[in-house]
Design a protein around this nucleic acid. Structure first.
Length: 430
RNA sequence: GGAGAGUUGGCCGAGUCGGUUGAAGGCGCUCGCCUGCUAAGCGAGUAAGGGGGUAUAAGCCCCCUUCGAGGGUUCGAAUCCCUCACUCUCCGCCA
């Protein structure tokens, strides 16, 4: 959510930002409502001040026993209250529409973000490693996994439905190994580990921007009372840990990480990545989240990208980093880097991590502030960042495909051997 | 699921015949004094959100709202009534 006052004072900048994003927004409507709102507030508050004054007088008169004078003032207050109630009704309508508008406007891209219409405008900034050269025809993980007996797509459909995955044997072990390896690396770099709920309420999902605009992307439980949603990413829970809290500047930057399952409806992605475990309804992910001072947040984004890349380097997987252009960024992000891993089955690099600085966009929605008495009075919004470190399912697919051997077996990357109980290769199950 | 208690400012904790209580007191924090250093001591300050004025680097001034959330009674509610959420204790059930 953007600050209404900031939008008012920077209309042209916001208008340009939205145009660059390919987003439309009714600025004239917003400005009219904003002005109307402020007029109503001023009028109501003047009346309220008068009412408070009269009420104080009534108290004094009652104490002195001057009942008649008190009654006259009571009548006046009653009139004022009717007037205020009328204007309040009007103001509630204006407020609701304004808030709805502000909740659906995307974040303003950072000045360093390249302008572009869609993914074709993204810019590669870094490349590490080289795709493996095979002297045989490499298999895709959706063939390799079943042939090794460690991925079972058919029975996953039986248990749930399409776009779910069932891992078995060393496949399940590899998934767990990757999770533990990633968490160990991140905690070793100072990230605090968390184990959050896999369901979240509406306030939580509104705080990070999934609601109200993207409800169709979420699985929603049908229970009575407070509706709960299955989290699409641990970013939701990690960021909301500090919702409606005021942090102390000395605590910042806070580095958090967590493993969670992630659930996505994938509405609107029919036909995309239909094979394998690249795009599924449930996947595992290790997530990183940072809470930073505004002046530090862009540096912290670079650091987060390196922390995600570090995992791929330790695993020996070739990858590249791209910065998303204005037209391809997510709703909450001010700047986003994607890390893409080499996937032989795609013959291309495929997204495996997305690291974003949302600046104060989520913090304003979620009420996450910080104080720094030596620098400024009162409180300010922190900057929040999030990034995958990494999407585990896609990492597993990348390991299988990049480490496969001519005989159909898969070598276990050196760093994972301890996590695999010493197993150095995944052989076809007899 | 049943019964009871509770939800106040960064933290702890007062506050019922409803009226200078936005809120005592303590801790913490900030600034100043004192001090060989530290500690202790003394003095002052210290909630957030919103609107307006002034200035636009920060700031300063006025007003409104907020004592879990929402609604009600009243001229006026942290204080009375209703609904909901959450926390704690006991019982039941259960991995």
């Amino acid at each position: 959510m953007l600050d209404a006052r900031w939008v008012r004072d920077n209309v042209e900048a916001v208008r340009e930002a939205m145009a660059n994003r390919g987003a439309s927004w009714d600025f004239d409507r917003f400005l009219a409502l904003d002005e109307e709102r402020r007029e109503l507030i001023a009028k109501v508050e003047t009346r309220q001040a008068r009412r408070n004054e009269l009420s104080k007088e009534i108290g004094g008169l009652m104490k002195d026993g001057r009942r008649d004078e008190a009654e006259a003032r009571k009548d006046e207050v009653r009139l004022i209250n009717d007037e205020i109630a009328e204007r309040d009704r009007h103001r509630d309508e204006v407020d609701a529409e304004l808030r709805a508008m502000l909740l659906t406007i995307p974040n303003v891209p950072d000045a360093s973000v390249p302008v572009g219409p869609d993914e074709t405008g993204n810019v590669e900034t870094y490349r590490w490693g080289a795709p493996p050269a095979f002297d045989f025809e490499p298999k895709a993980h959706w063939d390799l996994g079943p042939s090794l007996g460690i991925i079972d797509f058919e029975r996953a459909v039986k248990l749930a439905k399409s776009r779910f995955v069932l891992l078995g044997g060393l496949g399940a072990r590899l998934e767990r190994a990757l999770i533990n390896f990633m968490l160990d690396e991140h905690t070793g770099h100072g990230y605090r580990e968390w184990w959050p709920p896999s369901l979240a309420n509406a306030d939580t999902l509104t705080g990070t921007g999934q609601l109200p605009k993207f409800e169709d992307d979420l699985f929603k439980t049908s229970g009575e009372g407070t509706p709960l949603y299955l989290i699409p990413t641990a970013e939701v829970q990690l960021t909301n840990i500090h919702r409606d809290e005021t942090l102390d500047a000395s605590q910042l930057t806070l580095d958090y990480c967590a493993y969670t399952p992630c659930f996505r409806e994938e509405a609107g992605s029919a036909g995309r990545d239909t094979r394998g475990m690249i795009r599924v309804h449930q996947f595992d992910k290790v997530e990183m989240v940072k809470f930073a001072r505004p002046e530090d947040s862009m540096d912290e984004l670079e650091r987060m990208v390196r922390d995600a890349g570090h995992i791929l380097e330790r695993l020996g997987l070739a990858y590249r980093v791209i910065v998303l252009c204005t037209g391809d960024m997510g709703f909450s992000a001010a700047k986003t880097y994607d890390l893409e891993v080499w996937l032989p089955s795609y013959g291309d690099y495929k997204e495996i991590s997305s690291c974003s600085n949302t600046k104060d966009f989520q913090a304003r929605r979620a009420g996450i502030r910080y104080r720094d008495p030596s620098e400024f009075k009162g409180t300010r919004f922190v900057h929040t960042l999030n990034g995958s470190g990494l999407a585990v399912g896609r990492t597993l697919a990348a390991v299988l495909e990049n480490y496969q051997r001519a005989d159909g077996s898969v070598e276990v990357p050196e760093v994972l051997v301890p996590y695999m109980g010493g197993v150095r290769a995944i052989e076809p199950e007899a």
